[in-house]
């Protein structure tokens, strides 16, 4: 991201998609225009928080596939497994369980009514 965009866009809550676009206990990808990037939205109905947003880009395979992994937990911490080489990333902070030096970016997200909102 170049400085121009960084200056231009102030960080605010914005609507990304609707609740109906999400898939329970799994992920979908959304285009985050303001940051010119793609995010994976993971939806865990009944849990708190019930939605997470992390990079859709998988740093190990360089493919945009994180949303298509399996959501689960390791010792109670929610994670997503990359569908390509199966590394696990913690949803809370994006850190890779197998290699703590690698992490996905994370965003604050929430659901208000039917809107899925992201702070970006």
């Amino acid at each position: 991201m170049n400085t121009a965009t960084a200056l231009k866009s102030e960080v605010t809550w914005q609507t990304l998609c609707s609740r109906a676009d999400l898939v329970a206990s799994s992920g979908v990808a959304a285009w985050l225009a303001s940051a010119d990037t793609q995010v994976a939205l993971l939806y865990l109905p009944g849990q708190t928080p019930e939605v997470y947003a992390v990079d859709n880009h998988d740093p190990f395979s360089n493919a945009n596939v994180i949303a298509r992994g399996i959501v689960g937990d390791i010792k109670g911490e929610p994670v997503i497994a990359s569908p390509i080489y199966k590394q696990h990333f913690r949803l809370a902070d994006g850190v890779c369980v197998e290699d703590e030096n690698v992490r996905l970016r994370t965003w604050e997200v929430k659901i208000e009514g039917d809107d899925v909102m992201i702070r970006a």
């Binding site: 009944g46 708190t48 992994g69 399996i70 689960g72 937990d73 109670g76």
Partner: peptide, 29 residues
């Protein structure tokens, strides 16, 4: 029960001290 405090907003089941985990990429498939 993973017992690691996976929050569940639905009422915990009677007799279970903590919520079951979410599963993982081994047990789910």
């Amino acid at each position: 029960s993973s017992g690691h405090g996976l929050d569940s907003s639905s009422a915990p089941k009677l007799g279970s001290s903590s919520a079951p985990g979410l599963g993982c990429d081994i047990c789910k498939p």
